[in-house]
Design a protein around this nucleic acid. Structure first.
Length: 501
RNA sequence: GGUCCUGUCGUCUAGCGGUUUAGGAUAUCUGGUUCUCAUCCAGAAGAUCGCGGGUUCGAAUCCCGCCAGGAUCACCA
């Protein structure tokens, strides 16, 4: 079977069924389709397979679109909703009857069930016995389904772009239902009708559809449409090597967004899950488009490795533009901040803080968490129980003296600096900082080394309480940078709390 | 049960008959750098290439058989 479409412009689609949120497996199917389309300057379509009115929900369709948009996997034409095309499928099925490729079957569901059991008893595969296949008389008024008239002999062959040649015997195929007794189409019919109408050239989907392929190939031929190329992607497994499920934690794309994963990191990870380009691990979107090839897609299913995704996300965060990270914080993590803190994030100083935190985190959520105390007005809650000197009164006294010393020395540096205040609060970004007074982070480094030497304590022992006082946390961006950059009023107020510890 | 698919370190993978004492990544463990964390650097451990035959001077790579796992067999998609 040659493919007359191979010289045409590439057209592919992602066709989820809105019965749940967009999950990881769906994202990968969408990604591979999208990559293939972009690589060949083709078209990527979105089709919502909502023919099952019982289980389909509008909110899931909305979720698909929002997730795809977030991931940057945009579709090139208006989405197609199968639910709105029910009449088309019925007409196509009628056409197939007229042309001898389908027939009405008046057997009830119960009867067919009996046939299956019968076949099973005889050791055959459960199958409809084709009782109505050659029926001449029409049974007016009785409910019926429309079945495909699959050839009794012969076989269908196709070459999967990932798996190579595959053959199915027609004798193993059932005369499957095209139109249900309620007039609704089944999956195999609606898929093919739409793929024909939208002139798909390649079908890239999960390998759970391999067994549907021969059925659909017959339908393409019934409709006189050249059979597209197929590529069946391996499944993604959970850590238990079973199909990824809710039990494995985050399976839907929007959960990853909420946790602070970057779309390009998630996509990079999903692309590498089953596909490779030599030893390269980190890919930009344009590299993925450029290098993607079905020759290097794995045939076997892959276990979802959350640790590697986290590592990859850290790598992508490190190389991301800080402006963009800040926008993500503002858009997805604004609920972490009070409203004055939020407005501080939006200042140039806020952006500068992002650049300091950025290289140290693996999730945007962490970035936001570290940003909160730095942008929040006033002092922060301090819990000293984790500090080394918490149970060492002597060390504590030494460090308190050292920090007092720090405070005194730094105050002197700030003498003469202008004080800009509005309503009692400092003006973020214009209130003077030690940096403004010429004390760079390098100077700060030297200063603290001198202090620690002077008081006979290790630099680390001195800095950790400073960190806690300034940020309320045991982990933060570099202190020398922060101390030089943050408004002196804020630094002073927070370090002064040393006496209360 | 029938049909179809798959099988390389824990995990993701490279490998397409010889440069392989099977390479990289992640995770783990050592050590170093560092104000914390993250990064970075050096190193360790980890795979009888599912098993058994065969072809060949030579096989993870080709052929056959077996085993194991999965998908699917609906008026669900």
């Amino acid at each position: 079977m040659t493919n007359a479409l191979s010289s045409d412009r590439v057209r592919v689609r992602f066709a989820p069924s809105p019965t749940g949120f967009l999950h990881i497996g769906g994202v990968r199917a969408a990604l591979f389709n999208w990559l293939y389309a972009r690589q060949h300057q083709g078209d990527f379509l979105l089709r919502i397979e909502d023919t099952d009115q019982e289980r389909s929900e509008e909110k899931f369709t909305q979720d698909f679109m929002a997730s795809l948009r977030w991931l940057g996997l945009m579709w090139d034409e208006e989405p197609i909703f199968q639910g709105k095309r029910l009449e088309v499928y019925r007409e196509k099925a009628e056409e197939l009857i007229e042309r001898g490729f389908a027939y009405r079957c008046f057997c009830s569901e119960a009867e067919v069930g009996v046939m299956r059991e019968q076949a099973m008893k005889e050791g055959k595969k459960p199958q409809y016995n084709r009782r109505c296949r050659d029926r001449k008389e029409a049974s007016v008024g009785l409910p019926f389904v429309i079945r495909a008239k699959i050839p009794l002999e012969g076989h269908v062959d196709f070459t999967d772009m990932i798996r190579g040649p595959i053959r199915f015997e027609n004798a193993d195929l059932d005369d499957f239902v095209l139109i249900r007794s309620n007039g609704a189409p089944t999956y195999n019919l609606s898929v093919v009708v739409d793929d024909v109408e939208t002139r798909m050239t390649h079908i890239l989907r999960g390998d759970d559809h391999i067994n549907n392929t021969p059925k659909q190939m017959h339908l393409y031929q019934f409709f006189n449409y050249p059979v597209p190329q197929f590529a069946h992607l391996p499944m993604i497994l959970g850590p238990d090597k079973k199909k990824l499920s809710k039990r494995d934690g985050a399976v839907s794309a929007n959960v990853y967004r909420a946790e602070g994963y970057l779309p390009e990191a998630l996509l990079n990870f999903l692309a590498r899950l089953g596909w490779s380009h030599g030893d390269q691990e980190i890919f930009s979107m344009s590299e993925m488009i450029q290098y993607f090839s079905f020759n290097h897609v794995q045939k076997s299913s892959a276990v979802f490795n959350a640790e590697k995704l986290l590592w990859l996300n850290g790598a992508h965060i490190r190389s991301a533009k800080s402006e963009r990270l800040r926008e993500i914080v503002l858009e997805d993590f604004s609920h972490y901040f009070s409203s004055p803190a939020l407005s501080r994030v939006q200042t140039p100083l806020g952006l500068h803080l992002v650049t300091l935190i950025q290289p140290k985190v693996k999730l945007v959520a962490e970035l936001a968490q570290q940003l909160v105390p730095l942008c929040t007005p006033g002092t922060v809650e301090v819990d000293a129980t984790d500090l080394k000197w918490y149970k060492d009164p002597q060390l504590k006294a030494t460090l308190q003296a050292a920090i007092q010393n720090v405070l005194g020395s730094l105050s002197k540096k700030m003498e003469g600096a202008p004080h800009v205040r509005t309503g009692g609060d400092l003006v973020w970004g214009t209130s003077p900082s030690l940096g403004d007074q010429g004390m760079s982070s390098v100077d700060m480094d030297g200063f603290f080394r001198q202090i620690s030497e002077q008081h006979g304590v290790k630099l680390g022992d001195l800095m950790q309480p400073v960190r806690l006082l300034l940020t309320g946390r045991m982990v933060s961006a570099g202190l020398f940078e922060l101390l030089s950059l943050l408004p002196w009023d804020l630094v002073q107020a927070r370090l002064a709390k040393i006496q209360t510890l």
